[in-house]
Design a protein around this nucleic acid. Structure first.
Lengths: 115, 115
DNA sequence: TTCGTATTTAACCATATGGTTAAATTAATC
DNA sequence: GATTAATTTAACCATATGGTTAAATACGAA
C-alpha cells in the first residue's frame, strides 16, 4: 500500500474547475475530440488545451490520434482513488459517531447506581 | 436541484492539498485545536491558518471558540457532495459500458444473416 | 506542394496558492 | 495591569492557474 498523495493532489486539483468537470462528464458518455469538448465551453482552444493537460497529468484522460484529431478517453481509475479517499474518511468518522452513540445509549440504559 | 458548481470547486480545491487532507483526516477522529492540527504538519502557524481558511470556505470545517483556542470540527456534508458528483459520473459511464456490452453480446448471439 | 482544419505552443497578463517572518490580537492568569 | 499562550493579520515572495491572441505544427485532401 503506497502513498498516493501526489496522485490525489493532481486528481482533486483537476476536479476543482467546472470546465474540467464538464469535460469529464462529457467523456463519461463516450470518447470525444478536443473540439467536441470545447464546443459548450465558452473559452478559447488554447484554454481548452491547458485544461486537458491538467486532466492528463491526473491521468483522468488518455489520448489517441486520428489524423489531425486527438480523441480523449475517460480513465476511471483516478476517480476511484479520489472517491476511495473520501470513503475511507467516511469510515473513520462514522466509526467514531457509532462509538459515541453506543456510549450515550449506555448512559441511558445503565442509570448510575452510585453518586 | 440547484447548481453546486462553485461549492464543488471549493471542496475539490480544498481536497487538493495533502496538508488539508491530513487535517480533515485528523478531524474525522474528533474536534481539534489549530495547534493540534498543526503539530504533525511541518509548516508555520500562519500557513496552517491559511489552509484552515480554504477548508472553511469549502464549509468542510466549522469553528468554535474556547478561551484562546479556536476548535475545528469536521462538516461532512460537502464531502458527501463531492463523492456524490463522482458517483453520478460513475453511473453515467457504467450505464454506457453496460449498453456497449449488451450490444456486443447481441452481435455474438445474432450472427448476421445477410451480407 | 499548397490549402484547410484541428490542435498545440509561445508569449503575455492578472490573480490565486502556498510559504515565510514579524507584528497584532485575544483571552486566561499572575 | 503585565505576562504568557494561541491564533490571526500584514507584508512579502515565488510559483501556479486560467485566460488571452498570434504563430507554429500536424495531417488529409486537392
Amino acid at each position: 500500500m503506497v502513498k498516493y498523495e501526489a496522485q490525489l493532489d493532481a486528481v482533486f486539483t483537476a476536479l476543482a474547475h467546472p470546465a474540467r468537470r464538464a469535460m469529464l462528464a462529457r467523456l463519461g458518455r463516450g470518447d470525444a475530440t478536443v473540439s467536441e469538448l470545447a464546443e459548450p465551453l465558452d473559452m478559447s482552444m488554447p484554454a481548452v488545451t491547458k485544461h486537458l493537460k491538467v486532466l492528463e497529468r491526473a491521468r483522468l484522460i488518455s489520448r489517441g490520434r486520428n489524423a489531425q484529431w486527438r480523441p480523449c478517453r475517460l480513465e476511471t481509475t483516478p476517480l476511484n482513488e479520489a472517491s476511495g479517499w473520501i470513503e475511507e474518511q467516511r469510515k473513520v468518522w462514522e466509526a467514531r459517531l457509532d462509538r459515541l452513540e453506543t456510549y450515550l445509549h449506555s448512559l441511558d440504559k445503565q442509570p448510575r447506581k452510585k453518586r
